[in-house]
């Protein structure tokens, strides 16, 4: 029980803040709870398949296969696969991090996992269709092409700027979150 309370500490503090908003500024408090409820429903709609796919990826794809396809020596194929995986995604960016942990644990290269995160954040296909509808093809296409390069550069630089022991810490952390 105490452990549970500790884990949800931040959430509970925010809940208290939100409840006090309700008393101090009822209009904003009500709007805030309405938005939270709406977001919660959306999250509950999209997250189950994402996490079930994550579980199946973890169980069915052997480590050797993932190392070959997305590991440090996977070259262009690994980069392309990371882009495709991220772009085929749906759902908010924070749902990508648990998947990143599984990919890291299975031996995907850090740079490729960062590319996956980059693609998930900006080149998701459903999002691009939305952009096309509201911003037109010139805006969307320009942003897409620049992003393709940018995601790669950001991933490359982020990995390069990390010390070996910092990279090890990321991998150890990913291993520690495994379930048997």
């Amino acid at each position: 029980m105490k452990k549970m309370l500790l884990r949800y500490k931040v959430f509970l503090v925010l809940l208290v803040v939100n409840l006090s908003l309700l008393f101090l500024f009822p209009a904003i408090g009500i709007e805030s709870f309405r938005l939270t409820g709406q977001n919660l429903l959306e999250m509950l709609a999209i997250l189950p398949p994402i996490f079930i796919l994550l579980g199946m990826l973890d169980v069915w794809v052997p480590r050797e296969t993932l190392i070959r396809m997305m590991g440090d020596g996977s070259g262009f194929r690994g980069i392309a696969l990371a882009f495709l995986l991220g772009s085929a995604a749906a759902g908010p960016l924070y749902a990508a991090f648990p998947i990143a942990i599984v990919l890291l644990r299975k031996g995907a290269g850090l740079r490729n996992v960062l590319i996956f995160i980059g693609a998930w954040s900006t080149t998701k296909i459903p999002m691009l269709l939305f952009e096309l509808g509201s911003m037109g093809w010139k805006f969307t296409l320009t942003r897409f092409v620049v992003n393709l390069l940018g995601i790669g550069v950001i991933a490359y630089l982020t990995e390069r700027l990390m010390k070996p022991e910092e990279k090890d810490a990321v991998l150890t952390n990913a291993q520690a979150q495994d379930v048997h």
Binding site: F11, N18, M43
Partner: peptide, 19 residues
């Protein structure tokens, strides 16, 4: 397990975004 692991942060983020 992966979902439950990240649930506290999810709920926190959603409340924060709402506010």
């Amino acid at each position: 397990k992966a979902f439950e692991n990240i649930l506290p942060q999810f709920l926190g983020i959603i409340l924060l975004i709402g506010m």
